[in-house]
Structure formats: structure tokens, C-alpha cells
Amino acid sequence: MTRIDAKFAALKADGKKAFVAYIMAGDPDYETSLEVVKGLPAAGVDVIELGLPFTDPMADGPTIQLAGQRALEAGQTLVKTLELARAFRENDDTTPIVLMGYYNPIYSHGVERFLVDAKDAGIDGLIVVDLPPEEDEELCIPAQAAGLNFIRLATPTTDDKRLPKVLQNTSGFVYYVSITGITGAANAVATDVGPEVARIKAATDLPVIVGFGIKTAESSRTIAEVADGAVVGSAIVERIGNGDSPSEVLAFVKSLADGAHSA
């Protein structure tokens, strides 16, 4: 059982929805992002999604892309991102960390070496946007064998015929992408998302968490009401990009977490 599995079991026992926050590692610099990440659990974050910066984030909107550029310019790398996770783990051994990014930095590091290093740094799961089930041999199957969850995205274009393939090697939770589009773009609409979540839940026992297009405490609540939890990324990253202090960012995160937890 990974920290992710344990966390969702605990939330389920409490009858609570999950709140997941995304932060780009190293944005705007290593120290600041570590300070924000360290503050997330106290702000009510149940699962941390730690962004792995990449020059060409094809599924992300300008907010996340700029965050990645800031991080890379400040010298962030895959190795430093794992270091950041390790530093967080010094004081927190329960909050799950999911590393989210694109395949090339991992492939470049070497898959086997990466899995050892990630596990050692206290990473619990992976979301790799450009690895669909068709490429499971690359990382998904080795990651599961190494004891890391591999969390898959399901999208509005994942029809019933395709859904079993998407769920087959997924573990931890299912990340439902609420819109066809990029991060930080259109708004997620609970009335559209609800039936889709129900469709996925009918096919799996895993928790279904919804992300993309959730920007406010109110939408965090309405989306969490129709799912097992909500993810917010761009709206938080945007505040970091605007130069908000870690305490201001964490206050905003707390409002979003409170929204999801009131669902």
C-alpha cells in the first residue's frame, strides 16, 4: 500500500473528499517552492502534485508553461526536483507526492535509475502526460513493479470502448480531465463532469479525482461534490507567478481545500 492508497482509505473512512494541489518544482526558485510545498499539508492539501519542469509541456496552458520556464531558468532539474521531495519528506512521512510531468526528462535520466531515485526520494506516484496506455511498457509497468502508483488521465474523449484500456494498468487514483483542452483554460462544469465521473466509477474501484479548469473555492466544492476530489494547479501557480509570498499562496490554497472539504 502506497501513501496514496493509505490517504484515500483514510479520507473514505472519514467520509471526506480529497483536495489535490499542483505546484511546479523550483518555481520561482528552489527555496521558495520548497517553502510552499512544506506548507501544503497544513493548508489542507491531501495529495501534492509536484510538477517536473519541461521545456515543451504540450498539454499545458501558458500559466504552467511559464512556471516551468521560471523553474528551468532558476536551475531546476529532475535531480533537484527529487531533492525537493526528499527535503519535504524530512518532516512529513504521510502526505502523498505525485510527480507530474512529461516523459523526456525521465527517459533521459534512464527509467530504471529514475524509479530507484524517485522511490528513494519519497515519491509515491507518477502522472506522465505523454504516456498513454499504448506505451505502458515504457514506464507504467516498471513503475508499478517498483512500488510506485501510475496514475492515468481519463478525458472526455475516452469513450466506453477505450475506458477499460485506460483503467487497466492504473493505480492510486484516476485523474479525470474535465475538459478537452489544456490546463488553466476553460472552466470545469459540475453538471458535465458528474455523469462522466459516474461512468468511470462504474468501471473501477479507484477514487476518481477531477482536474483542469478548477479555479475557485466554489468550483473546488462543486466539482468535489460530484467526484472523490478536486485538483487545482494553474490558479495556484498563477499566484506564484504574480509574485505572491508563500503565506499568501498557502492562504489561497487553504480556501480551495476548504471548498473541496465542505463538499
Binding site: 504540450m58 498539454a59 516523459y103 502526460v129 505523454d130 504516456l131 498513454p132 496506455p133 499504448e134 506505451e135 492515468r152 488521465l153 481519463a154 478525458t155 472526455p156 474523449t157 475516452t158 469513450d159 477505450r162 485506460v166 480531465v177 478537452t180
Partner: peptide, 20 residues
Amino acid sequence: EQGRFGQFGGRFVSETLMPL
């Protein structure tokens, strides 16, 4: 069938694009 030429090629895209 995987769209590979030896180890090269493939289908490294997000799930949204995969059905397309």
C-alpha cells in the same frame, strides 16, 4: 503495429489525443 521503426516512433501523446 506500435508505430515503431526499431525503437523509434511510437505514440507519445496525451490521452485526449489518443482516440483521435
